[in-house]
Amino acid sequence: MHIDWFVFFCQIVNLLLLLFLLKKFLYGRIIGAMDAREARIASTFADAEKSREAARESAERYEKRLRDLDAHVDAAMNRARDDAEAHRKELMDKAREEVDGLQARWVETLKSERDAFLADLRRLAGTQIYSITRRVLRDLADVELEQRIVEILMERIQTMDEEERGKFRASLADGGTITVQSAFDIPDVERQKLDDVIHRCINGETQVVFEKSDNVMTGYELKTDGHKIAWSIKDYLDSLEERFYHALYEEAQEKR
């Protein structure tokens, strides 16, 4: 067993050479690649962590937005519901008002129609009653209605008490005329009679003026400047109108 010194030094050189070569071709490269991979993995993990953090933040942000949105939607829904309720009430009130207005107008129209109908009825009834009465009187009693009216007026003047006559006279004290208004033309004979009765019973000097009224319901009127006496079929017609009014009203109530 011996040591060959040449080989010994050669081996030292060989090993140092091997150390150099391996350092150059193996360790440096492998460690570089490993470190690069580790760095890459670390950066990948860091990126992943960053992404995860970003994702978490995004998720939180969107969750918050979703919650806000939900709250907003709830508030909007409540507001919309309240608005709709208010609008419904407003529309209902408006509709009620319109219905009330329509009803009022309808009632008004109905009333005016009723009044018009009653007025027409009154006018027509007055005319008819007047003509019927004339015919009945003529047929049954051979009496002219106008003549009879004049007679009644004369009777009235003649049977007038002193107090009433005093009122006529007082109103004629300052002058003026007595007007006899009737719905028909009084014949001259009857006029003369009436004129006489007035002059005899009320005032002998007063001028008597005869006027014809367009209104058939007038009957007759004897009037001075401050006092008058009259007869007309108005009272009968009022009674008739009242009965018609009640009949219409009761029928309307039953229909309702």
Partner: peptide, 24 residues
């Protein structure tokens, strides 16, 4: 034999580390 081993190590290292990958 030392040179043989050295050669193997160096050539093997060069061959393998020639196209190292730092990917996964």
């Amino acid at each position: 034999y030392t040179w043989l081993i050295m050669g193997l190590l160096v050539v093997g290292s060069i061959a393998i580390t020639g196209n190292l990958s730092s990917e996964r």
